[in-house]
Amino acid sequence: MQRLSVALRLAGTVVPVLMLSTSAHSSGGDRELGKHLSSECVTCHQISGRVTAGIPAIIGLPEDQFIAMMNGYRDKLRDNQVMQTIAVKFKDDEISALAAYFGSLKRR
């Protein structure tokens, strides 16, 4: 899955340039795309990493872990209607982008 998503991104026209500049320590997700997409997530998941009640923190995670979780929701292996609904809309490159962006954030 991971290899496939990288191959897809390399085939794209816009992403690779950005990817090269951010990929040194990551899976190569487009952080600018990730930042944009993240606005959908932070209605519930606090960007500071703070946790209120039943919504977990999603920043600073290893990218592989983040991607595996999102794929779990997308494939309905993980069980939460909200997250399944969110995840099913994302393509592989978008999940990688989110993983790269959220993975780069530190707890405040």
């Binding site: 932070v42 209605t43 519930c44 606090q46 500071s48 703070r50 209120t52 009640a53």
Partner: peptide, 20 residues
Amino acid sequence: KETQAENMGWYGGIIADMFT
């Protein structure tokens, strides 16, 4: 019960998103 915890978590989340 989990859904209620999510409800409370969402409230904290949207307030943080709006106000900070």
